[in-house]
Simulated scan of single mutants.
Amino acid sequence: MEAEQQVARHYGRSGIEQAFLDALRAAGKDIDHLQPGDLSGADEFHLGGPAATAALAADLGLGPETHLLDIGCGIGGPARHLAAALDCRVTGIDLTAEFVEAAEALTRRCGLAVSFRQGSALAMPFPDGAFDAATLIHVGMNIADKAALFAEVRRVLKPGARFGVYDIMRVAEGDLPYPMPWAATPETSFVEPPETYRRLLGQAGFTIEAEHDRSDLALRLGREARERAAARGPSPLGPHLLMGPTAPQRVANVMATLERGLIAPVEIIVRAD
C-alpha cells in the first residue's frame, strides 16, 4: 500500500486540467470544441504515443462491440483515442485521483462517453468477467507484484478475451538513470524483462499470442519530435504538462537508456484461457 501511495504522489499534482486548457489555447485550439487529436503530444504518456496505441488496438482486434478496460489510464489519452477511432466502449481506471479528474474533464470537452474510475489495479472495483479486452500501457513499471496484477486482470476478463500489455521492459543489464518518467528513484521502479512477463502471464491463465518490440518506432518518433522542436521551438503541448519542470531530464534519461539498448517498449498480446 505504501508503494501505491508513493506512485500516486509521483504522478499527482493539482491543476492538470487547467494546465492543458492553457496549453491548448496557446496552440490555437478551441477548448469548447475539442477533438481527441487536439491533445496529441501530451495526453498519451508512453513511448510511441498514438502510433503505439493504434498498433496495440489493431493487434487486439478492437471494434465497436468491444468493452475495453484501460488499466492505468492516466488522463485518458488512449481511452479517448480508441473510443473515437474505433467506437468501442471504454472504461479507464487509474490509481491517481488527479489523473482521473483530468481524464473526466478533458473527455467531456471532447464529447466522448468514456467512464473513468479511481482505484488500484491490484483490487479493481469490477465484477468477474466484465470486459471483452484490456490494455496495460506503461503501467507495470510501477507495480512490483505483477503476479497479483495479472491474476486480477484475468478475473475481470471474459474467457477468450484479449489482454494487451505495452510496458517498458529490461532487455540488457546495466544501471537505469533516474529520474525516469515513471519514477523519481528506484524505490518505485519495477522494470522486468519480457521473460518475466511471459511467465507470470502464463501462470495467471493467459496464452501468449504475439510479442513486438516497439523500440524502432519510439526512437524514430523521438528523433522527429526533437527535429520539430529545433525547427519550430517547443510545443505548448508536451510532457512537461504531466511531469513538470523535470520533464526534459526524465525524457532524456529514458531515450538515452532506450538508445543504449538497456530497455525497450515491448507489446505482448495474450488471450484469457
Results as ranks from 00 to 15, higher is better:
residue 43 D to E: 03
residue 167 D to R: 10
residue 146 K to H: 06
residue 62 L to M: 13
residue 240 H to P: 08
residue 16 I to F: 05
residue 105 A to T: 08
residue 180 M to G: 07
residue 203 Q to C: 04
residue 161 A to T: 09
residue 91 T to H: 07
residue 238 G to A: 13
residue 237 L to M: 10
residue 206 F to R: 10
residue 187 E to K: 11
residue 11 Y to S: 04
residue 212 H to K: 14
residue 98 E to S: 13
residue 202 G to L: 08
residue 122 L to K: 11
residue 32 D to F: 04
residue 52 A to L: 03
residue 209 E to P: 02
residue 66 T to A: 08
residue 228 R to C: 09
residue 137 I to H: 12
residue 265 P to V: 07
residue 216 D to M: 06
residue 50 P to N: 15
residue 71 I to W: 04
residue 248 P to D: 09
residue 37 G to W: 05
residue 145 D to C: 08
residue 238 G to C: 07
residue 231 A to S: 14
residue 197 Y to A: 00
residue 84 A to D: 13
residue 221 L to M: 12
residue 223 R to C: 08
residue 194 P to A: 07
residue 76 G to M: 05
residue 233 G to V: 06
residue 256 A to Q: 14
residue 246 T to G: 10
residue 209 E to M: 01
residue 12 G to E: 01
residue 58 A to Y: 03
residue 19 A to C: 03
residue 140 G to Q: 07
residue 91 T to E: 08
residue 243 M to N: 13
residue 110 C to E: 06
residue 272 A to T: 10
residue 95 L to S: 04
residue 49 G to Q: 12
residue 2 E to H: 07
residue 152 E to G: 12
residue 95 L to V: 02
residue 65 E to A: 15
residue 109 R to L: 09
residue 207 T to N: 12
residue 119 G to C: 11
residue 39 L to T: 04
residue 94 D to F: 01
residue 31 I to C: 07
residue 124 M to R: 06
residue 172 A to Q: 07
residue 215 S to L: 09
residue 179 P to Y: 05
residue 149 L to K: 08
residue 226 R to P: 01
residue 235 S to L: 07
residue 64 P to R: 13
residue 86 L to R: 15
residue 224 E to N: 12
residue 99 F to H: 10
residue 31 I to D: 02
residue 223 R to D: 15
residue 200 L to H: 05
residue 98 E to L: 00
residue 55 A to V: 10
residue 206 F to A: 12
residue 256 A to Y: 04
residue 111 G to W: 02
residue 248 P to N: 12
residue 207 T to S: 14
residue 157 L to P: 08
residue 5 Q to I: 01
residue 219 L to V: 06
residue 96 T to E: 03
residue 192 E to V: 10
residue 96 T to H: 00
residue 169 M to V: 14
residue 172 A to P: 05
residue 49 G to T: 10
residue 218 A to T: 06
residue 115 S to T: 15
residue 102 A to G: 10
residue 75 I to F: 03
residue 127 P to S: 14
residue 96 T to W: 00
residue 122 L to V: 09
residue 71 I to R: 06
residue 151 A to P: 12
residue 268 I to S: 00
residue 18 Q to L: 04
residue 96 T to L: 03
residue 208 I to G: 00
residue 40 S to A: 15
residue 175 D to A: 14
residue 251 V to W: 12
residue 1 M to R: 00
residue 89 R to Q: 14
residue 264 A to Q: 09
residue 254 V to N: 10
residue 54 A to I: 08
residue 231 A to Q: 14
residue 142 N to V: 00
residue 184 A to W: 01
residue 191 V to P: 10
residue 251 V to Y: 11
residue 207 T to I: 09
residue 224 E to D: 15
residue 144 A to H: 13
residue 4 E to T: 03
residue 18 Q to V: 01
residue 58 A to H: 07
residue 117 R to E: 15
residue 218 A to V: 05
residue 30 D to H: 02
residue 148 A to H: 09
residue 103 A to R: 05
residue 20 F to C: 05
residue 251 V to C: 13
residue 264 A to W: 07
residue 260 R to A: 15
residue 57 A to T: 09
residue 2 E to Y: 01
residue 265 P to F: 05
residue 142 N to Y: 02
residue 82 L to R: 13
residue 13 R to H: 14
residue 139 V to Q: 04
